[in-house]
Amino acid sequence: MVVKSDDNKIICRCEEVSLGTIKDIVHHFHCSSREVKLRTRAGMGYCGGRICRTIIEKVVQDINNEKVSNESQLSYRPPIRPVTFGQLGGSENDDES
């Protein structure tokens, strides 16, 4: 039995973005990991890209034949944990939605 392509495996668990989608975007637009994120929502889900960011960067660097840079393309932005408007307004003990 021939092994099917791995392209339909999920890379970004939060937004269910597949490896194939990410590869297609990089090939088509010759773009950075940041642009991949904006175009596919990979790394933009609930976890803030904590889980999949290194994989997205790896795939982009491999396809574009780049070396890993010191300053990561997918920098973190606050809030780095989901917060409520209540918390942003200063109230305590609120939930994480």
Binding site: P78, I80, R81, V83, Q87, E92, N93
Partner: peptide, 21 residues
Amino acid sequence: VSVYDISQSKNGWEVYTTRGE
């Protein structure tokens, strides 16, 4: 206690968490 943001001022650090600042 989960931290979601941090800022620095003249007097030091302010750390924003799910249990307050």
